[in-house]
């Protein structure tokens, strides 16, 4: 269990989320895949803040600050993901009310 293990798991989850985001028609699956990608980024940030030597980047400043910056970033990413999922679900339900579909290939008025 070292830094590379966590980073490889994070890359695997991100790749699965990327595949789901590009290749699926249902917009709810696309939202879930975006959540997976954000979680993969969180794992990478926390692993970096756990394993990397913080005394190299904190020259003269507090070591605590640079050792925990990854966790603070993950907190902000979680908050932004919550806001994004709330707006996404609202948009999905609005589109479903007016167009009776959740497939992103059917919502293409802007192309015509």
């Amino acid at each position: 269990m070292n830094l590379e293990n966590f980073l490889i798991v994070s890359a695997a989850i991100f790749a699965i989320g990327l595949y789901g985001t590009i290749s699926k028609r249902n917009v709810i699956t696309v939202l879930m895949s975006i959540e997976l990608m954000l979680n993969a980024v969180n794992i990478a940030a926390v692993a970096f803040s756990r394993y990397l030597d913080p005394s190299l980047i904190s020259q003269g400043t507090d070591v605590t600050r640079s050792a925990l910056t990854g966790q603070i970033f993950s907190l902000f990413i979680v908050t932004v993901a919550a806001a994004e999922i709330a707006l996404g679900v609202a948009i999905i339900i609005t589109v479903y009310r007016s167009r009776e579909t959740v497939f992103i290939t059917d919502v293409n008025q802007m192309r015509h």
């Binding site: 695997a12 991100f14 790749a15 699965i16 590009i22 290749s23 028609r25 249902n26 709810i28």
Partner: peptide
């Protein structure tokens, strides 16, 4: 039965695989 793939299934899997290999 609401999770069908679109036309980009094979290119998306290739992109994901390349991404994973490069990052690893």
């Amino acid at each position: 039965d609401g999770n069908p793939p679109n036309r980009l299934k094979i290119p998306a899997s290739i992109v994901g695989l390349i991404f994973f290999l490069v990052f690893t």
